[in-house]
Design a protein around this nucleic acid. Structure first.
Lengths: 345, 345
DNA sequence: GCTTAGCACTTGAAGGGTATGAGTGCTAAA
DNA sequence: TTTAGCACTCATACCCTTCAAGTGCTAAGC
């Protein structure tokens, strides 16, 4: 445990280093601290911090740089000041204040705003869907030449489609019966239930109208699976360029690929039921993320599941500011989604 | 007009410079040319080429680098050798050989393959749609609480959706009548016709069933507009990183933004009815593209319009190889799309 | 009349040496 | 416990030199 002064010195080092990006020395720091001691005293305290593994030197006679542990200590124990981000909050409110037709628009838009506010990369994950989303409607549209398009609508305003070929000899009336059957039996059910029924009860029922319902069931299954997968949105991926230092620029491509590989990055987002999780540099298991930090906020939409909003930035990041922002978004999104669900129940 | 030897020297310089990226000198070049002359002779010829503005020096005593005019001359007059890309062609065939449910999948996939083969950025534009695409079906799905989702299906397997609120007092039967009306009257028509009718005949007809059809017509209009806009796909945008030189790295972000701004980049793609267009460096009007080259292939799907496939790469680019590739894709996509339309007529 | 060897000249890149300044740890006095 | 003073370290910037690759030009050769 650090003394109060040591804490202030650590905070000072982190603040300076975050702003300037160069190792910070005892003299420069002495002039900025809220109390007066000489640089020699700072040096002594710095030696203690270094012994505790909270700061590091880049070479024997250089200034100090926060270590991963230093950031961690800062985030866990020192980051108490609520930064005044009223301006940012106003921006969030205003930017989110438009009419959304679909949930994914809101979630996607949030990623963009958050990346603009931070100049980092923002990731958002829609609330888990398999259990919370419900089937709202099922339709078929004939495309001609035995091709039919199946359309599935869920309660959050998403649609998924798939094409399939119907066997020869199936009439329009038969198809209509099947559509009615599915709408009657499954509309209003959570997608997870729909998936289950699709493999048990439904095939039998359908076989009343269709001789070989397999291809039909397969298509539906495929659409449902697609509808329930994670939906990740990325905002400001190009900001990666600005905050990745030259030496790591060769990692950018694989990192970018990973971000765009469906479901890949979400494995590494921090989980924290009580709100915000902070992962710093090498704390992350993925090699590509070792030189970055991720602030993840989990938002809870009650029975509709949990989603995430995260910022990917450099380890040298103004943690307090970003944490406040993610926190604000987290609450704001949850509020608006709950509102949305209430309205479209 | 250049002599044959001068042409070979220009080609040699371009080839070397493309491979190595460093200015090429007379001595090194002399060892690689298919005929034997001394470096002094090469120097004399180089002086001629330089006088013609086809090559340049980076400083007084440096080797030569092709100028934009040099590339242009090369592409127009010297690029005769059909490079053996049988391997690449096989890759194209194989990679495209899967089942596509929608046209945009094929077009999108092509962008990815092309960017992988070249290590540059590939852009593809779906065939123009307003006149060629036809309406295949229109459906409504009730979302509850006066919210209804409109779904529009076109003959290339795309769907567009939009939500709207219906006025209180409208019954399900009334809605069904409207859906039937639209399906009866408009299915099979090109989207351009649908747009027209929507503003003339249809409102009157709808008013038989709905007292205030305006919000309904508006929604439809909105969906149609969205369905007819250009569809641009980008593959390998991160390759921009590798072929942008350090000095221009600050332009990357705005360039990236432009690429992702719907419809922006397509203004600058080359138009050429007879197939392939090559734009080199400063030949392009857009500032952000000044340091790149774009090879655009137009593919023709007959009555269904024209699409494009393009490669964005450095001015220092193996033009013959890339041109061959774009050309192959151009034909291959056209063939497959025609096949698709035939099948789903 | 081309071609080519020879040569003086130019230039960027690489390497080495030195000065500078920001920083450190340690010691001893306050 | 704090701080002034001091010897020491190291990255950076700068200058200077060398080196290699390249050029243009001239004069000799086929």
């Amino acid at each position: 445990m650090l003394t109060e002064r040591q804490g202030l010195i650590l905070s000072g080092i982190i603040k300076d280093y975050t702003q300037l990006g160069t190792p910070v020395g005892s003299k420069a720091l002495a002039n900025q601290l809220p109390f007066h001691v000489s640089s020699a005293t700072i040096r002594n305290e710095m030696a203690v911090l270094e012994a505790n593994g909270l700061i590091e030197k880049t070479h024997l006679s250089s200034g100090r740089v926060p270590s991963i542990n230093g950031y961690r200590y800062y985030v866990d124990h020192l980051n108490l000041s609520k930064v005044n981000t009223m301006d940012d909050l106003a921006v969030i409110h205003k930017a989110l204040d438009m009419n959304y037709h679909k949930i994914d628009e809101l979630v996607q838009h949030s990623a963009n705003i958050l990346s603009d506010l931070t100049n980092y990369t923002a990731l958002t994950l829609q609330p888990e869907q398999a259990t919370s989303r419900r089937l709202k409607g099922f339709r078929l549209v004939a495309l001609g030449d035995q091709n039919v398009m199946a359309i599935l609508v869920t309660d959050n305003g998403d649609t998924e489609t798939a094409q399939f070929k119907i066997p020869t000899g199936v009439t329009g009336d038969q198809l209509e019966s099947v559509v009615n059957l599915i709408n009657d039996q499954l509309v209003g059910q959570p997608l997870s239930v729909v998936l289950k029924e699709l493999k048990s009860k439904i095939p039998k029922e359908i076989s009343k109208y269709l001789r070989s319902p397999d291809s039909f069931i397969d298509t539906l299954d495929q659409v449902l699976t697609r509808a329930t997968r994670d939906r990740l949105y990325i905002g400001g991926e190009m900001n990666l360029l600005s905050f990745t230092d030259q030496s790591n620029i060769s990692y950018l491509k694989p990192l970018y690929s990973m971000l765009n590989q469906s479901g890949e990055i979400s494995k590494y987002l921090g989980h924290s039921d009580h709100g915000i999780s902070v992962q710093i540099g090498s704390e992350m298991s993925n090699k590509l993320l070792r030189n970055y930090s991720v602030i993840t906020g989990t938002y809870d939409v009650g029975q509709y599941g949990k989603g995430m909003i995260a910022v990917l930035g450099p380890t040298r990041m103004p943690y307090s500011k970003v944490i406040t922002l993610v926190s604000a978004f987290r609450e704001e999104i949850a509020k608006r989604l709950l509102g949305y669900y209430k309205e479209n129940k």
